[in-house]
């Protein structure tokens, strides 16, 4: 690994550890290996959003050309968001692509991702299904995102109705996550979700 990259990551690591956001438990950064090529990030769901109370884990891979090229980041925690793939966790965010600047840091990235959770951009979607729901039925979107936060990110807001519907499908022999995806994609319409799963 190039010298600058390691030097930068070491420094940035300290920057995040020392920062006030850590004190508020909003962002966190851990080393995965000892040569600073892979890190584990964590961001708290922003207050007053569907993600509130959840903790979202991120995979951060540092390229050799860092910081001249952006880090490769994806969500490990499953999340329902127009700009994040509900399947792979891939993120559509300009600063992780062509708007990256060498003077940006991992702290900027984590804070930008947190900002993305508060303000989605459905016109530049990563997940077309989620984006369509966001645009057509924002209430349904919030309910679904809150349910996913509860199911995968330890969020406090359980929705008994959703859980009940998932249980119905699980009883039919469907895997839980698969059931959740189908129901989420069909606005929690049990009949249509069942139809899709068994067709």
């Amino acid at each position: 690994m190039a010298n600058i990259a390691a030097q930068r990551i070491k420094r940035e690591f300290k920057e995040v550890i020392r920062s006030e956001e850590v004190a508020k438990c909003a962002i966190k950064l851990d080393l995965v290996d000892n040569n600073y090529t892979e890190l584990r990030g964590e961001i708290a769901g922003p207050p007053d959003t569907a993600y509130e109370g959840g903790n979202f884990v991120l995979e951060i891979k540092v390229p050799e050309t860092y910081p001249f090229n952006p880090p490769k980041v994806r969500f490990i925690t499953k999340i329902w968001h127009p700009n994040i793939s509900s399947v792979t966790g891939a993120i559509c965010l300009d600063i992780l692509k062509d708007q990256w600047a060498a003077a940006m840091t991992l702290r900027t990235v984590l804070l930008s991702l947190q900002a993305l959770l508060s303000a989605a951009e459905p016109d530049d979607p990563q997940d077309a299904v989620v984006a369509r729901q966001y645009k057509e039925n924002v209430e349904m979107f919030r309910l679904t995102a809150r349910h996913w936060t509860n199911a995968y990110a330890g969020g406090p807001n359980a929705n008994p109705e959703c859980d009940e519907k998932i249980k119905r499908l699980v009883d039919m022999g469907i895997e839980e996550h698969q059931a959740r995806v189908a129901l989420s994609s069909y606005n929690w319409d049990l009949e249509r979700a069942t139809e899709q799963l068994f067709s």
Partner: peptide, 25 residues
């Protein structure tokens, strides 16, 4: 750092649209 920045950008085929390395600049 400027030199490395240019090398990385040029190797990606970028030339007239290389910008400053500062955030939001």
């Amino acid at each position: 750092c400027w030199i490395t920045h240019f090398e990385v950008q040029i190797n990606q085929g970028i030339s007239t649209s290389i910008s400053c390395m500062a955030k939001d600049c």
